[in-house]
Design a protein around this nucleic acid. Sequence first.
DNA 1: TGCCAGGCTTCAC
DNA 2: GTGAAGCATGGC
Length: 280
Amino acid sequence: MTEERIDNFSLHKIARSGQCFRMTPMESDSYQLVAHGRRLVVSQDGPAVRFDCSREEFDGLWRHYFDLDADYSHLTGRADPRDRFLQEALRYGQGLRILRQDPWETMISFIISQRKNIPAIAAAVEAMCRRFGDRKADKYGEFYDFPTAARIAGLDIGDLLECSLGYRAKYVLSAAKRVAQGKTDLISLESLSSEDLYQSLLEVDGIGAKVANCVMLFAYHRVDAFPIDVWIERMINTEYEGRFPCERYQGCAGILQQYIFFYARSETYKNCPKPLNQHS
DNA sequence: TGCCAGGCTTCAC
DNA sequence: GTGAAGCATGGC
């Protein structure tokens, strides 16, 4: 067991933030996360966060995964004081962090995400893992890895259709073949500039602007990537008169995007008079 | 029961 | 380059 005191960290919010789909609540207020071939059980009591793993595993993997070396406290200071909506979003989402997820898993998960809601995405991803991922076991029982590109590449389209992928099944199969063949090398993409990385991701069938930006942000930690889905689009129209000022927020626009997304979907925002930002 | 969901591809124009 | 149609399925 490894215990850390962490500021600006909310397990509960991160798990519900829609950036990862395999972080699920367990009994006794803890969460299990399957990522990078392992299962981690985490619980939180205020700033005290308990990771059920060795200190070596925590320092070697999870500290980086949860982006714990980054300071999120300065975000509020960067927000335009006149931008009441953003101020509220930052307050509401305090504790959110941008995870550093596996590029392959992130790519497939967000290809699947198109025109699905978050519970449906999680269900489809979990179905894929249970059918085609390696089965492992630890003291908590069995769990399943996210299936490898080689494994998916060897499947029939019908196998994937059984995971409720619908019309996305052909995209998942195509992407898997592309990665398995090395035509898209997810490791070497890391060294590309953000623009080149973006263009490379767009070469994958089934990846457009939004999914490419999600992969850039949630796997390659390109914090200027700004995915625009229906929720963000709605907020841009409602609160920003059609355009979010990304140029003002270089180095954190993508992080702000995640707070906006989280707040936009909340009951708190749903129940307040809108817009929060007064348009002149 | 109908509407909506962390959109993309294809095809007019 | 822009805009609209078509797409599978489950959650609410």
